[in-house]
Design a protein around this nucleic acid. Structure first.
Lengths: 194, 194
DNA sequence: CTGATTTTTTAAACTAGGTCAAGGGTACCT
DNA sequence: AGGTACCCTTGACCTAGTTTAAAAAATCAG
């Protein structure tokens, strides 16, 4: 069953009984996406919390000049949602797009809130999960202090080794907040250094 | 009682019974800080979750060249902690420093975890609280996309009107990721524009 | 296998923001 | 009242990263 992956994920935090398992698994719906297809478009309300079974997504915003800026990448066995939009039920400023053909499981607001009631320990699990997400985001902010773009690129490669190979450099540049042209120059520079 | 402020804060989320109130209030310890005094130094483990009763703090990191970068400001009726260090019990990369004479209430890890058991609804409240913190941090990341420093400064003034008046411009510059000199130039420019 | 789309690289001109150095203002401590 | 520490501003010069444009390389869909 594809929802087994969710249970495995949750059990990394706290064990879950058989009865709870079926309660949890029931409301999730499976979806298959092609490369480039979107889970969320800015302007829409983010109506679902998404678990990635396979594939890879980027979450990005668009600035006033139309440039895209990646905020995070999410691959298999992780969750993605625009929490700001999901919890406030307001239009999202973000987009979520598949970078590869992907398979996901989604749960809507109403179902998730019902689950919180039926399986109260989910509050604890999701609290911890969001703490992890917060820490990850804070590390992203901290990383941006490393003054030069080259250092940030090296940090990125170290932290997301596995992912980095799957991502086009244009996407990485957008994450680092530089142009693809400049990233290309950084890479060239790094070669001649060693 | 100073811990009443905490109850008022929690009741913004979910009502709390009298019995729960005293359970919650018991473990908090009050501390008074002078301007410049630190709640947390990088290298230490963040051992306490702090509620600000009055005053104002900045959380900042220091880059490899010794420059400080403010990550967030927190004023009265809000919480501050380095979650990364608090929850992982590892050395923090951050500092927390009073920008004004301040009064705080602190709870340690062990006490907080015991409280989560005694008053399970705190899991729900803290989950929501951390969601809010996450959203705030994500907005910070998004705001940084507004390409020019001037736009980011205007956004900051709009979002933190009240706080902005209390903060020296050097601190604001450090938050915006620019030098105080350049912020000064932006401000001069804005005057001549209108 | 092939044409089409996307990605990566190069290079030259340009700009936002940084650096360094110095002067003046303000607030607090004693 | 006077000193010390902090804060804000200004100017001249410098550099990391952008822009634009164009071509080479890689990847994808049919």
């Amino acid at each position: 069953m594809p929802t087994d992956a969710i249970i495995r994920f949750l059990e990394n935090y706290i064990p879950v009984s058989e009865g709870e398992k079926s309660l949890i698994q029931a409301p999730f719906e499976e979806h298959v996406l092609k490369r480039r297809q979107k889970l969320l478009r800015s302007g829409e309300v983010c109506k679902a919390y998404t678990f990635v079974v396979s594939g890879c997504f980027r979450m990005y915003g668009v600035d006033d000049r139309g440039f895209e800026h990646n905020i995070q990448f999410v691959a298999e066995n992780d969750w993605i949602a625009d929490m700001a939009s999901f919890y406030t039920v307001k239009a999202s400023l973000l987009n979520i797009e598949a970078l590869e053909a992907s398979r996901v499981l989604q749960i809507g607001q109403a179902d998730l809130y019902r689950l919180y009631e039926e399986v109260p320990k989910l509050n604890r699990i999701f609290k911890v999960m969001i703490e992890h997400k917060y820490i990850e985001l804070q590390n992203r902010v901290l990383q941006n202090f490393s003054s030069t773009a080259e250092q940030r690129y090296l940090d990125f490669l170290e932290q997301y080794k596995a992912l980095a190979n799957r991502l086009p450099n244009t996407q990485i540049a957008s994450y680092l907040g530089i142009t693809p042209e400049f990233l290309s120059r950084i890479r060239k520079n790094m070669q001649t250094k060693r």
